[in-house]
Amino acid sequence: MPLSEQEQRLLEEMERSLYHNDADFVASVGVSRLRPNYRSIAVGVLLAVLGIVALIAGVALQLLWLGIVGFVVMFTGVLLALSPGKSMKGMKGMPSSGSSGRGPAQGRTDQGFMNRLNERWDRRQDGQ
């Protein structure tokens, strides 16, 4: 079912507001393509397997310290395997949104729902 004209205008207004107020967020979500780091995944899986083996050995031999060490090694391996990869494009060239992009919409007396939420978020971030 196609959108009505009012819904299309509202959607376009929300998109403009998002691009205007949250340029950093749009740039980071739209451009960030992560390449998996296969070396860290392989090392993480290996550490997780070794940790599980040490954990099971600690339980079987009733050695508490070996079970704890195995759990820590397993947990570290999982964190290493799930760590984010390298970004294909650097974020240094991305434009940053300054304070000029934030604030009430000019020329409008009734603000939209998203504008009110954005203002509340900005005030919360500024500590007001």
Rank of each mutant, 00 (worst) to 15 (best):
M1T: 09
P2L: 11
P2V: 13
L3M: 13
S4E: 15
E5K: 14
Q6I: 13
Q6C: 02
E7K: 14
Q8S: 07
Q8R: 10
L11E: 11
E12F: 08
M14D: 15
S17L: 15
L18H: 07
L18G: 03
H20P: 00
H20I: 12
N21E: 15
D22M: 14
A23H: 11
D24T: 03
D24G: 03
D24N: 10
V26P: 01
V26N: 00
A27Y: 04
V29E: 09
V29F: 05
V29W: 05
V29R: 07
G30P: 00
V31F: 07
V31E: 05
V31L: 06
S32P: 00
S32C: 08
S32R: 14
R33M: 12
R33A: 08
R33G: 01
L34I: 09
L34M: 06
R35N: 09
R35W: 11
P36I: 07
P36C: 01
S40C: 12
S40E: 11
V43F: 14
V43G: 01
G44E: 12
G44I: 14
V45K: 10
L46K: 06
A48W: 10
V49Q: 08
V49S: 06
L50G: 09
L50Q: 07
G51P: 09
V53K: 07
V53H: 07
V53D: 05
L55N: 04
L55T: 11
A57Q: 15
G58E: 14
V59T: 14
A60I: 13
L61V: 14
L61H: 12
L63K: 00
L64H: 07
L64W: 12
W65P: 00
G67K: 12
G70I: 09
F71I: 04
V72A: 04
M74Y: 01
M74F: 01
M74K: 03
F75H: 05
F75R: 05
T76W: 05
V78S: 03
L80H: 01
L80R: 08
A81S: 11
L82P: 00
L82K: 08
L82V: 10
P84K: 02
P84D: 02
P84L: 04
G85Q: 03
S87K: 06
S87Y: 08
S87P: 03
M88A: 03
M88D: 03
K89S: 00
K89F: 01
G90K: 04
M91A: 08
M91Y: 03
M91S: 07
M91D: 06
K92D: 10
G93T: 03
G93R: 00
M94T: 01
P95R: 07
P95F: 02
S96E: 08
S97N: 06
G98C: 05
G98S: 10
S99W: 11
S99G: 09
G101M: 06
R102I: 10
R102H: 06
G103E: 12
P104V: 06
P104W: 05
Q106R: 12
G107H: 12
R108Y: 04
R108L: 09
R108G: 02
D110Y: 04
Q111T: 07
Q111N: 02
G112Y: 00
F113Q: 02
M114W: 02
N115H: 04
L117A: 04
D122K: 13
D122P: 05
Q125C: 08
D126C: 02
G127K: 09
G127I: 12
Q128P: 13
